[in-house]
């Protein structure tokens, strides 16, 4: 595992290195003086420690830089700060940070927060990776048939938290024998292009109600198309009505506590993600 420690002072990297040295799995700890300089070292699944004893505006800008640059990858950002900064850090968690650790640092607390941050959510439940294939096929088919857009698969991983990413997300709750949700998230620009292609019209410049409606219909079709593959199985589900969420950093609470599989695709030169969390019949 790789931990990137962003702080103007080198002492934090030393403390993190010492705390993580007691973990069973080895950690590679890389110091960086600021978010911009850290970006080249961040791989898709790194854990980032961000020294948050900063001017709140500077701290928020650094967090935004880190979250924006990760696109649809699962980089987790843990904040480190004095108790006097706790309100700011709570706000930052709402904006997408994975959590925070208070100074003075305790090796055990820091280690357990780090291990918790990189552990996939829902890991207490069994994961059947076969359940993702119908959703991959459905996504490819729906884009091709309804918008004449080819998609390619870029990545697949288990998510570490339920934070959604992207500017626009279409959410479909799944109930019945199996329960969970499927979410499609994408940048606003891709959402506009996609809905424009579906309608055979020039894409809108901004995410309007019409674009939101189109993304809702996309997730409806993806979930519906995938549903047929689960007929008669422990993963059979019923569709609810789609909901569309806009704005970054919002969080979806999957009530099932099931693992969340993320597939990153590319269409029209832009990445988008489909997240599936489905808990089978108990």
């Amino acid at each position: 595992m790789k931990a990137i420690v962003i702080s103007e002072k080198s002492v934090l990297a030393g403390q993190v290195r010492q705390a993580l040295s007691k973990c069973p799995a080895p950690w590679d700890v890389v110091p960086a003086p600021n978010a911009e300089k850290a970006l080249p070292a961040i791989d898709p699944h790194s854990l980032v420690f961000l020294d948050y004893d900063l001017d709140p505006l500077v701290g928020r800008a650094a967090l935004k830089t880190l979250l924006t640059a990760q696109d649809f990858r699962d980089v987790q950002v843990l904040l480190v700060g004095e108790r006097s900064m706790e309100t700011n850090m709570k706000d930052a968690v709402k904006a997408g940070a994975a959590g925070y650790v208070l100074r003075p640092l305790d090796d055990g607390a820091l280690r357990s927060r780090a291990e918790e941050a990189v552990k996939p959510v829902g890991s207490r439940q069994k994961l059947d990776v076969r359940l993702i294939n119908p959703f991959i096929n459905a996504t490819t088919e729906v884009f091709k048939t309804m918008a004449q857009m080819e998609v390619s698969r870029k990545d697949l991983f288990l998510k570490k938290n339920y934070h959604m990413f992207g500017d626009v997300s279409g959410v479909m709750g799944l109930t019945g024998v199996a329960t969970g949700s499927v979410v499609i998230s994408m940048p606003g620009q891709l959402a506009c292009v996609l809905v424009g292609r579906m309608l055979g019209e020039t894409p809108q410049a901004d995410v309007t109600d019409s674009v939101r409606d189109g993304i809702g219909e996309m997730v409806n079709m993806i979930a519906g198309h995938a549903k047929a593959a689960f007929a008669g199985s422990e993963y059979h589900f019923t569709l609810s009505l789609p909901v569309v969420v806009t704005g970054g950093g919002h969080e979806i609470a999957h009530k099932t506590g099931a693992p969340c599989i993320v597939v990153v695709f590319e269409a029209d030169g832009k990445e988008f993600a489909v997240q599936v969390s489905l808990s089978p019949e108990k």
Partner: peptide, 10 residues
Amino acid sequence: SGTMRRIIAK
């Protein structure tokens, strides 16, 4: 879905 109604109408 208004989008779907428009697609079908076209």
